[in-house]
Every structure is written in structure tokens, then in C-alpha cells.
């Protein structure tokens, strides 16, 4: 299932968030441009074309995500283009001072540094970010990590889209992404499916986890926790706002994690899942007040 960002979908989603309540006004005004710019870069990279990673089903079936061990050097130009487009927008959104902005721009003007950070991010080597940030005066590792994810995300999204069937047809039951290995930031229930059989109603509702980094959506068991696999109905709970039943918190009281979920059967037109998370912080607040922690920490759900 492809829910890749498109600039008009992002704009529409930001509008939905703005209309919901003025409480999100500051956030959409400040960070909206980042989502739009990211979607444009994804389009641009996809149009120019990216080297498509080879999918080895045997390797994937043993639990190894496709991009582990991939030669990211093949995407050097795409990362450089993404950094050139997004770092100025990012500095604006983060409201970095000139010194910090210049330093961040310098870090991301070196393709080798970007490639090293991408590899570290895919391999989960967060220490590399801390070590790298030590070389700079005004770029803390948390900012470096966020900037790297911002830069590499549209390239990865474009690559994942180009992989098409070879990726979506893989058998994958894990709670992390089969493409890049990242954990999901949100999940969705698929839209209604229309069949030739008039006798049947409903359909759809299949759960897809949405990767926090590359945006790939992969099928996952509907009534199981993506964090620990728990499928016991007594220890799992769905929370929803009484008159907004298409946005859920899927909570697992066994592992204490939660993941937000959007029911696409009720959500028309379809939103951009990455941008939408910025407008669901009220659900994160509720979940965290109930001593749950997010499956994947993002800028939008780190509320304390």
C-alpha cells in the first residue's frame, strides 16, 4: 500500500489540521513548510530516478531489511540535492541562530558526512551522531539526527516507491520496516475495497504500519501490538475521541507502548500520514498521561 507524500496531499493535510482547532496553528505555521518541501524533494528525486536496491527474498525472509548493507553511495547525488533543498527550510523551522544554521549547512554540504550519517542511522548507531556532533560547536546530536532524518527521508521514500511490487509482495510479519528497519510512527487501516459481489459490504480495514523514516507501509496483524506482538484482547485497548472514531490510540498494556492509528475507511480525502501526526498530539498527550510510551519517539510525540 502506497501512501507516499505528495505536495498537494501534504497541503490538504495541513489544512485539515488547521481547521480542526486553532491549538495547532503555531505548529502548522512553523513546520508545515518542512513537510511540503520534503514532499517536493521526494517528487524531484523520483523524477530524476534513483538506483533501485535489489530485493533478495531469502535474505528478507530471514529478517534482514532490504537497505541493511546497501551501498548508499549510489544515492550520493540524491542526498546532496535533498540537503541543499531542505537544510535551509529546516533551519527556518527550528529557528536556529545564524551560526548554528551555517554550521548545519556546512555539515550537510559534505556528501561523505551525509553518507556516514545515513549508514549510522540505518544501522542504529546513534553513538556516531554523538561522536560527529562533538566536532561542531553549535550542532547537538539531537539536531544532527533530526536533520539527517529530514534529509534522507524523501530519498528513501522515492527509492521505496520505485521498488514497488518487489517490496510490497514480501512476506514480512515484523514490527519494523522491511525496507529500512525503522519502527513505525503511525499505522492505518486500509480503505474500503469494492468487489463485484453486491452481497458483500465493508471490506478493507487491513492494518498497515507506516515507517517513520522511509514511509513504507507494510501489512501487520490487525489485533496485535507492533512492539511486542501481544494479541491478547484483555491487555490491548483502543482509545478514541468519542466523536472522532477514525483516529485511534492502539495501546498495549503488556509492553506499555502505543501507536496511533488512522482508519482510512472513514478518512476522506486521504491524508499524508507524516504530516498528520503533527495534528494528533492531543492523542499522544492522552496516551502518555496514561503512562504509555510511543512505539517510535518523534518530534510530534515527545511531549514532555
Amino acid at each position: 500500500m502506497n501512501t507516499a507524500s505528495a505536495p498537494d496531499t501534504v497541503e490538504r493535510t495541513l489544512e485539515i489540521i488547521r481547521k480542526r482547532t486553532p491549538a495547532y496553528g503555531e505548529l502548522t505555521d512553523r513546520f508545515g513548510s518542512l513537510f511540503t518541501a520534503s514532499a517536493k524533494v521526494c517528487d524531484e528525486v523520483a523524477t530524476k530516478g534513483v538506483a533501485v536496491p535489489e530485493v533478495d527474498p531469502a535474505r528478507v525472509s530471514s529478517g534482514v531489511p532490504v537497505l541493511v548493507g546497501f551501498d548508499f553511495g549510489l544515492w550520493r547525488e540524491a542526498f546532496a540535492l535533498s540537503a541543499e533543498r531542505l537544510i535551509p527550510v529546516l533551519c527556518e523551522a527550528l529557528e536556529l541562530e545564524d551560526t548554528a544554521a551555517k554550521e548545519l549547512a556546512a555539515v550537510f554540504s559534505d556528501a561523505d558526512t551525509i553518507l556516514g550519517l545515513v549508514r549510522a542511522r540505518i544501522e542504529g548507531d546513534l553513538q556516531h551522531f554523538e561522536n560527529t556532533s562533538l566536532h561542531f560547536d553549535a550542532t547537538p546530536s539531537a539536531v544532527l539526527l533530526f536533520a539527517l532524518e529530514t534529509v534522507c527521508s524523501p530519498v528513501l521514500r522515492a527509492a521505496v516507491q520505485s521498488m514497488g511490487e518487489s517490496l510490497s509482495s514480501l512476506s514480512w510479519d515484523e514490527g519494523h520496516c522491511p525496507a529500512c528497519g525503522s519502527t513505525p510512527s503511525i499505522s492505518q487501516l486500509s480503505p474500503k475495497e469494492f468487489t463485484d459481489l453486491d452481497q458483500l459490504v465493508g471490506g478493507g480495514g487491513k492494518k498497515f504500519l507506516h515507517c517513520s523514516l522511509c514511509g513504507h507501509d507494510w501489512r501487520f496483524k490487525r489485533n496485535a501490538c507492533p512492539s511486542c506482538g501481544n494479541d491478547d484482547s484483555e491487555t490491548r485497548e483502543i482509545f478514541y475521541v468519542d466523536d472522532v472514531r477514525f483516529e485511534h490510540i492502539e495501546a498495549c498494556h503488556k509492553c506499555g507502548r502505543y501507536c496511533l492509528n488512522i482508519d482510512m475507511r472513514e478518512f476522506e480525502p486521504r491524508p499524508d500520514l507524516d504530516a498528520l501526526q503533527m495534528g494528533l498530539i492531543h492523542l499522544d498527550v492522552h496516551a502518555q498521561e496514561n503512562r504509555l510510551s510511543p512505539l517510535t519517539a518523534t518530534l510530534w510525540n515527545t511531549v514532555e
Binding site: E95, S141, A142, L144, T298, L299, T302, V303
Partner: peptide, 11 residues
């Protein structure tokens, strides 16, 4: 904050 996730409060 180390390489942990950025928070909106920090921004």
C-alpha cells in the same frame, strides 16, 4: 539530550 529525539519543548 544526546542523540535522543528532539522535543517540541526544546525548540
Amino acid at each position: 539530550s544526546g542523540a535522543a529525539c528532539l522535543s517540541l519543548g526544546q525548540l
